[in-house]
Amino acid sequence: MGEFSGSEPLVGEIVGLRTFRVDDSGLLLPLYSGGVWYDGTNTATCSPPTGDHRRGPHRVPEAACECGFYAYGTREAAARNRHMRYVRAVVSCWGDVVAGTQGVRAEHARIDAIWLHPGAPSGLRRRIAGRYPSARFYADADAMLGEHPLSELSCYDRPRRVRPSSRIVAVLAFVLLLALGLVPVEQLRGTDPLWDLWIVVTAVVAAVTAWLVVGAHGAGHLAAAFVVGGLLAWLVAPLFGLSGWLLRLPLLRGLVVAAGGYLLTLRPHYFPVVRAPRERSFCGVGG
């Protein structure tokens, strides 16, 4: 069963939890598309990046597509999304609803309640409240969920908390991969165990990159393929000597951007705001 599809479609109102980007005009936007959520009822259509209109007309959502309005089914599933630290919204979903292990995709959705991080500027809060007068605003996220409990579906997983040791192991593995890509090719070829390790690791990373590219269905898959592809370029860079640093540039740039973005979030009263374009699409796309 998929994270947001796999079970039989449901009919009825399901309450879920999701997050949004916020632009400087106070509009709430999906994380991966440029559409806008209205106050009141929103109706999804099948459009990229969450839908594939080339499949021809079909009901929204459909188990074989990724269209529809997304909502997490549990607090644990929602906690995986880092943007939840800034914006949380309780949404009611109805019409055709497809459920998975992490949440649902729905044909219609409505924002019932909103919590914003304390760092959100007061002027922006007023603009958001003006855009969504029917939603109730909360200063406490737990109080919001206490008054708007999430629907409990049997298909939802209750994911275990990731242990700190697991994160440490993942970081160490990434650091070791970076170190392996810095070993000069003469030293790699001169040490049989090290050369064998390099071949195995490079082959595995290449296979994962190919799998991600072939199986790409949306922006998230392509982003993962780009990151793993950058790691692959880093690993093969020693074969090209000094010119191999050109292969390392994409991953280096990504690491610098990621580190800069993380440091930016550490500023007091930080709250991410998207610049509103002059023309905004108000169609009911999924996301």
Results as ranks from 00 to 15, higher is better:
A99T: 02
V104Y: 11
A106Y: 02
E107T: 02
E107F: 04
H108G: 01
A109D: 01
A109T: 11
A109W: 00
I111F: 12
I111P: 09
D112T: 03
A113P: 09
A113L: 05
I114L: 15
L116A: 08
H117A: 10
H117K: 03
A120P: 13
P121M: 05
P121A: 06
G123D: 15
L124Y: 03
L124N: 12
L124F: 05
R125H: 05
R126Y: 10
R126P: 00
R127C: 10
R127N: 11
R127S: 15
A129H: 03
S134A: 14
S134E: 14
A135T: 02
F137R: 11
D140I: 12
D140V: 15
A141Y: 01
D142E: 15
A143N: 00
G146D: 08
E147M: 03
E147N: 08
H148L: 08
H148M: 07
L150D: 04
E152D: 10
L153Q: 07
S154L: 08
C155K: 04
Y156Q: 07
Y156H: 13
R158V: 12
R158K: 09
P159V: 14
R161N: 08
R161Q: 14
R161A: 11
V162I: 14
S166G: 12
R167N: 00
I168T: 06
I168Y: 09
V169H: 13
V169G: 04
A170R: 13
V171W: 15
L172W: 08
L172C: 13
A173H: 05
A173W: 04
F174C: 15
L176F: 05
L177F: 11
L180Q: 15
L182M: 14
L182V: 02
L182Y: 06
V183W: 03
P184Q: 07
V185R: 05
V185T: 07
E186N: 09
R189T: 08
G190T: 09
D192L: 14
P193G: 04
L194V: 10
L194T: 09
L194N: 03
W195Y: 15
L197G: 01
I199F: 04
V201E: 11
T202R: 10
T202C: 05
T202N: 12
T202H: 09
A203L: 12
A203F: 03
A203I: 02
A203G: 14
V204M: 09
A206R: 04
A207H: 06
T209D: 00
T209P: 06
T209R: 00
A210P: 01
W211H: 14
V213M: 12
V213N: 00
V214P: 00
G215D: 14
